[in-house]
Simulated scan of single mutants.
Amino acid sequence: MPGEPPCPYCNASELRRGAFVRENDLCLLSIKPSETGALEGAGIIVPKAHRPTVFDLTPQEWAATQDLLLQAKAHLDATLAPDGYNAGWNVGEVGGQHVMHAHFHVMPRFQDEPLAGHGIRSHLKATRNRRPI
């Protein structure tokens, strides 16, 4: 829309800059070095066409995402040898999506992390997250 900033994932040049990149006709995988030392090896898989959420992907984009997810795992297994993974989508602002272009997170996890064993739902299951009655 006029006046809105351009989508940072529609122009993939920033996703490619300084990153390990793999792509197919429909999606791109970007794994950048960690800027903070946390989440080393974390990456995202982005459809090349602008899709606001995972629910907007075509069946072909789902298959293309899976193809890159398997390539990401092979690369991370070979280079970092993680002990586990978190993988998933954030959808909508309330769901934690800050860029409104669908992107699949791939996060290697390690036994020696302070939060090892905490999954992607652990903070959501906390009693402090209970909705008001």
Rank of each mutant, 00 (worst) to 15 (best):
R22I: 01
T127N: 06
I120P: 08
C7E: 09
H105I: 01
S13Q: 14
Q66V: 15
L26Q: 13
D25S: 12
G95P: 07
R128E: 14
I31N: 05
D112W: 07
I120H: 09
Q111L: 12
R130A: 13
H98E: 12
D83S: 15
F110N: 05
T36N: 08
C27E: 02
A49I: 01
G18A: 08
A116Y: 15
A78R: 10
W62M: 10
A42Q: 15
N24T: 07
T53E: 09
E35F: 00
Q111A: 15
A12V: 12
I44Q: 03
D77T: 05
R130H: 12
H98F: 09
A38I: 13
E23G: 04
E93Y: 03
V46D: 02
F55G: 13
D67T: 12
H101F: 02
A74L: 12
M100Y: 07
P2Q: 13
V99A: 00
W62K: 04
A72M: 06
T65C: 11
T65K: 01
P6G: 02
Q71D: 13
G117E: 05
R17I: 00
D77C: 04
T127W: 09
Q97H: 06
Q111E: 12
Y85N: 03
L69K: 10
A49Q: 12
P8F: 02
G92R: 06
E14L: 08
T65W: 00
A63L: 15
R17C: 07
P2E: 15
Q60I: 01
N11Q: 12
I31A: 06
A12E: 14
P108C: 08
I120M: 12
H50V: 07
H103R: 03
F110E: 10
A38F: 11
A102F: 02
A87Q: 12
R17F: 06
P47T: 03
I120C: 07
D77N: 15
A81Q: 15
R131D: 11
S34N: 05
L68H: 02
M100N: 13
F104M: 11
R51L: 05
I133W: 10
K125A: 15
Q66R: 11
R17T: 11
E4D: 14
T58A: 13
A87C: 11
R130D: 13
P8Q: 08
V91M: 14
